[in-house]
Design a protein around this nucleic acid. Structure first.
Length: 108
DNA sequence: CGGGTGACTCAAA
DNA sequence: TTTTGAGCCACCC
């Protein structure tokens, strides 16, 4: 298991329940925002790992861009709603309220 | 080494 | 405002 992959998983697992974060922030936390695509790649390779709440990772606008990579189209949204995150039409409402920033919280 | 892909982001047209 | 184009990073062939 490569370093980058592990780091992504590590951060995602630390996302508090009821919160969400972005690919960009994770990438930024791991090095640079430009690795955001690779974050998506890492999450894509997760797909079956229940330990990692990948559903709490959305794009920078709060859009559930990765929902099609889950079991079904609504898994991600339902999961978030279950945790108390308001999601409507593939978008997190009051996104800023739910946004969790690993850089601020973990501050390594 | 070069080329293609992607759950991203930013900037310009 | 909406749509393109182009970087950037990790991976696979």
């Amino acid at each position: 298991m490569n370093h980058f992959f592990k780091d992504v998983i590590d951060v995602v697992k630390l996302i508090p329940k009821g919160k969400v974060t972005t690919y960009g922030k994770i990438a930024s936390f791991l090095g640079s925002v430009k690795s955001s695509r690779s974050v998506g790649w890492a999450l894509n390779n997760l797909s079956c790992n229940n330990e990692v709440p990948a559903h709490r990772v959305v794009n920078r606008k709060g859009l559930l861009t990765g929902k099609f990579h889950f079991k079904d189209e609504y898994y991600m949204q339902n999961k978030l709603i279950e945790e108390g995150v308001m999601v409507k039409n593939n978008e997190v409402l009051n996104f800023n309220d739910y946004l969790w920033d690993p850089i601020k919280d973990l501050t390594l």
